[in-house]
Amino acid sequence: MPLRVKVRNAESGATVDMELEGENTIEDIIEGAAGYWEKDAGAYVLRRGKRLLRGQQTVAEAGVLNSDDLELIPDPEGGG
């Protein structure tokens, strides 16, 4: 049974609905959302509430539920 979640773009506030299977990984969501918004090549993380979800986990392992709100956040690489 597929899940439907809402992914928010932390930089623009835009959202996109995404349909997921339990075996999809968090990395799949990150890549799907970054691709949808044509984000610059860069590192991103995905949060659910106060937790950052581990990339390698499946949606089921990460405990992502139907109707969850997730957020795609850029992970800043600079500093030099």
Binding site: I26, E27, I30, E31, A34, A41, G42, A43, Y44, V45, L52, R54, G55, Q56, D75, E77
Partner: peptide, 11 residues
Amino acid sequence: QCGMNRSHFRI
């Protein structure tokens, strides 16, 4: 490293 994912390693 625990907080990194494929997008970090791609870069």
